[in-house]
């Protein structure tokens, strides 16, 4: 059962701002999605081999060779919050 409390929890994990007035609506919609997916549970899959990947391809490797990446300016340029060559984020308490 998805209630407003779960909606708030998921929103906080995803760092999304949700208006209190919208919480019941999201709870209803998420609940409906879960119900829809639950239909899969009706299938008997005891004899079905688990799918590790949808593509029938294996062993795609890369050699251990250095390739140029991004410059620090390019890497930090995509963020609005940087300091001392690092990305700046809200403080994580530990």
């Amino acid at each position: 059962m998805v209630d407003e409390k779960i909606v708030r929890y998921i929103a906080s994990l995803a760092r999304l701002h949700i208006e209190t007035a919208d919480e019941p609506k999201f709870a209803r919609e998420l609940e409906a999605i879960l119900h829809y997916v639950e239909k899969l549970g009706a299938l008997d899959v005891v004899h079905v081999k688990p799918t590790s990947h949808v593509l029938d391809v294996e062993n795609v490797f890369r050699d251990d060779v250095i390739k140029p990446g991004l410059s620090r300016e390019q890497a930090l340029g995509i963020s609005e919050n940087t300091r001392d060559g690092s990305y700046k984020v809200p403080r994580v308490i530990e």
Binding site: G85, S86, V89, V92
Partner: peptide
């Protein structure tokens, strides 16, 4: 992560 208590932020090095 480097935590900066004074400026209340964390700095990330990837």
């Amino acid at each position: 992560l480097v935590h900066d208590a004074v400026n209340n932020c964390s700095l990330v090095d990837y």
